[in-house]
């Protein structure tokens, strides 16, 4: 018996007996690695799909959302740090919800999808896989809200049972990843390309933090990379930062910065760019890139009108990328 090496994420933690990975929930007991939060979520909610945010995937539908303790990143601005920066043994709330129970409950609540979210679901990937497989068998979709810090083989396996991803691209700068998130940029970019190759629906979120990642030249480079590697039809969400956790020294993102970022991404050629965590009816709605017709009007997380006809613009017939039915 002895140490084990975790192969799930690029951190490749070498874990002695009795220790855990950097994620706090994958524990070496007697020389075998245990997923201690399997079937033990600490958060269960029903959210609108728009809250994930996923704007081009079953709009306006409720999503049964689960998360366990732990995370393989340690972002100083984490908004779910009470969940993500703790191990399972530190949690007051641990629900008992095996995969079949999650699927049954989601159906009872009228949800058409299950979301693996809040902390980073990568660290409970065994639970995700088993639940998602059952959900598929019973006609539900699976969505994965992640920072995308995962190795290629486990990601490819997850892609077999996941239908949509929202991946947080935290900055287009390795220094930011190292300083703020205790991670690296390249594995995240590789993961995004893998998701695209595997054919899962993909949207990207970028949280704009004043002074740390709000340089417009960097946002332009990131937008170009998304256009070239993932496609101009990939939705990009710029999200507003709020002071949280270990980053209370910075102010909320000014609306002006978000608008500038939105404009940069549009100028580069991204067709579906949104602003989140800030009321902006125009930048929160979907327009036809060809003729400008309002396709999906949103107010916050609420869909006010969905004018798509068979996934296309009602005026010019342009097909809009996404999963609509």
């Amino acid at each position: 018996m002895g140490e084990v090496v975790c192969e799930l994420c690029p951190k490749a933690c070498r874990i002695p007996e009795g220790g855990s990975g950097d994620c706090r929930v994958r524990v070496n007991l007697d020389g075998r690695l245990r997923a201690t939060t399997y079937g033990r979520p600490s958060a269960i909610h029903i959210d609108p799909m728009e809250k994930k945010p996923l704007f081009h995937f079953h709009p306006g539908t409720p999503v049964f959302s689960i998360a366990t303790a732990g995370c393989n990143l340690h972002c100083k601005n984490c908004q779910n740090w009470q969940l993500s920066q703790r191990g399972g043994e530190e949690m007051e709330v641990l629900f008992r919800a095996y995969p079949q129970e999650v699927v049954d409950r989601a159906r009872e609540e009228g949800c058409t999808s299950v979301a693996y979210t809040y902390s980073d679901p990568i660290i409970f990937s065994e639970y995700v896989y088993d639940t998602a497989e059952l959900a598929h068998a019973q006609g539900l979709s699976n969505v994965f809200i992640t920072a995308g810090y995962i190795n290629r083989d486990p990601l490819r396996k997850l892609c077999r049972v996941l239908d949509a991803f929202n991946t947080d691209l935290k900055a287009f700068d390795d220094g930011f990843y190292r300083d703020v998130c205790s991670a690296k940029l390249k594995p995240v970019l590789d993961g995004l390309v893998t998701c695209r190759e595997e054919g899962a629906w993909l949207e990207v979120t970028n949280l704009v933090i004043p002074t740390l990642n709000d340089d417009m030249a960097m946002i332009r480079r990131m937008s170009k990379w998304i256009r070239d590697e993932l496609g101009a039809g990939t939705p990009l969400h710029f999200s507003r930062f709020q002071p949280m956790y270990r980053m209370r020294n910075l102010p909320p993102t000014p609306a002006e910065s978000l608008t500038k970022a939105w404009q940069e991404a549009r100028d580069v050629g991204l067709e579906y760019v949104y602003i989140g965590n800030l009321y902006d009816r125009k930048a929160g709605s979907t327009y036809c890139p060809k003729d400008g017709t309002l396709l999906i009007e949103r107010m916050g997380f609420r869909v006010i009108a969905n004018n798509l006809v068979n996934g296309a613009c009602p005026t010019c017939g342009q097909t809009i990328p996404g999963v609509w039915t």
């Binding site: 002895g2 140490e3 084990v4 090496v5 975790c6 192969e7 799930l8 951190k11 490749a12 933690c13 070498r14 874990i15 002695p16 009795g18 220790g19 855990s20 990975g21 950097d22 706090r24 994958r26 524990v27 007991l29 020389g31 075998r32 690695l33 245990r34 997923a35 201690t36 939060t37 399997y38 079937g39 033990r40 191990g87 399972g88 043994e89 530190e90 641990l94 008992r96 990937s125 065994e126 639970y127 190795n151 083989d153 486990p154």
Partner: peptide
């Protein structure tokens, strides 16, 4: 890459059923 944790607390919560000893995928000795 690894953390010292309260292993006794983990084992106690596994025995009480709060946590699981489900074997993980993606590792090697």
């Amino acid at each position: 890459g690894w953390r010292r944790i309260d292993t006794a607390a983990v084992l106690q919560r596994i025995s009480s059923g709060d946590l699981q000893d489900h074997e993980a995928l993606w590792y090697h000795v």
